[in-house]
Design a protein around this nucleic acid. Structure first.
Lengths: 229, 229
DNA sequence: CAGTGGTCTAGACCACCAT
DNA sequence: TGGTGGTCTAGACCACTGC
């Protein structure tokens, strides 16, 4: 069996963790490593690219490859559709549209999405349920400039998220997570007490530079998101 | 100039977003695509591997490649050291050790890390400051079985996170985010009101299957984490 | 300028697994 | 069992950038 890129990656990682390749030190170049491991340069290259991706090393042409001083930690979270998140738990999904208005964007939204103050946006408030219990509150704003069809769509049967995924399958987004206290309206919708700590997700989405939508998702109390690395 | 894997990736992505390659449909195999694009099979392969990584397609040997029904969204968050997070904002970092005890793990911790009930753990409470203002509360548990040196380490000068990064540069971890209400102790340390909604990060860390540490980081009010994709 | 990584090629063998 | 993706090879050219 020949030497695989996994072998090379594992061995380099071992040398890094054992200190044989110290933080800040230089890693031999690809040609030398290929000779050492008895494999092709492309094999070493793939191993090294994965180590870059995992945050263990840095590479620059001519300067070579160095072990990072502090490994860069990053974790990846999947962003599921609410419906799938709920149904994957073997629970019945429910949805309802709470409010729908066409309006001008408030200042904070215009800033966040770089909208003109006089363009129209569709503002939706929706609720998602798991087995009939409140699961997630959705505060959604959709640009009607980019997406005029939204105005004639019946959001009482399909959630805006699922609709948008069909219409705009690919997009760029900015996501942020934080905590808020439940105000009276959130408390009423989510069936919790005013002041309860709630986990909130905000997502702004663009397509080819144009703002499509902003959404603020408020999860029921105790909600958490988890991942491994 | 020859056809690059970026060209191939961009073109496939274009076909996916325009519906030319519909969700659920089959993508031609690598050999055909290589012929179509006039490039080597390896070039197509790299483009496709990145599309898998980005969540747009699925691949299985023999079955071939299909466009995912719903693109899998995922976002990557970097997990900085508190010190670097604060200093990168151009602000002075401060640290203090609040409490230190050696004890047996409480039940929830033993379950979370798969610890024996009778082994010893080091329990630390620390505070991190930005420009003298409370920034983050750290509730840290370290297994003394795997890491006996922790007991003799002076955590009044170095934070446990920075120490652990040096001692155990590589590890597996599980991270979760959620929201909590400030209890009286958190409120006192973070200088906020009891009941305030706080963003909390929990991380369990293993090295080669052995539990190393569990930490609960509570951020000051209004803290948020953000990323793009 | 010269060393390093970034990438492409053309060919090969193999593992997996749907049929 | 045959088609498909997974990976390795040996060689090549090029882009970047530290010296």
């Amino acid at each position: 069996m020949s030497v695989t890129f996994r072998d090379v990656k594992a061995d380099l990682l071992r040398k890094i963790t054992l200190g044989e390749l110290a933080p800040g030190s230089n890693v031999p170049n690809e040609i030398d490593l290929a000779a050492d491991y008895g494999c092709a340069r492309a094999t070493v290259n793939r191993a090294m690219r994965e180590l870059v991706d995992d945050g263990f090393i840095e590479r620059r042409r001519k300067a070579g490859t160095r072990v990072r001083m502090v490994p860069v930690r990053s974790a990846r979270f999947s962003i599921p559709l609410v419906r799938e998140e709920i149904e994957s738990q073997g629970v019945e999904y429910g949805y309802s549209l709470v409010a729908r208005t066409v309006t001008k964007p408030p200042d904070w939204l215009a800033v966040q999405l770089s909208l003109a103050a006089n363009e129209s946006v569709l503002h939706l408030i929706c609720m998602h349920y798991a087995d009939g219990e409140p699961y997630q509150h959705e505060d959604r704003w959709i640009s009607l400039l980019v997406n005029p069809n939204a105005e004639s769509t019946d959001f009482t049967v399909i959630g805006p998220n699922e609709w948008l995924v069909k219409v705009i399958p690919f997009s760029n987004a900015e996501i942020s997570f934080h905590a808020v206290q439940a105000d009276s309206e959130l408390a009423r919708h989510l069936g919790c007490k005013v002041g309860d700590a709630l986990f909130q997700t905000e997502r702004s989405t663009w397509w080819k530079g144009d703002a499509i939508t902003f959404v603020r998702l408020t999860h029921r109390p105790m909600h958490r998101i988890t991942t491994q690395y």
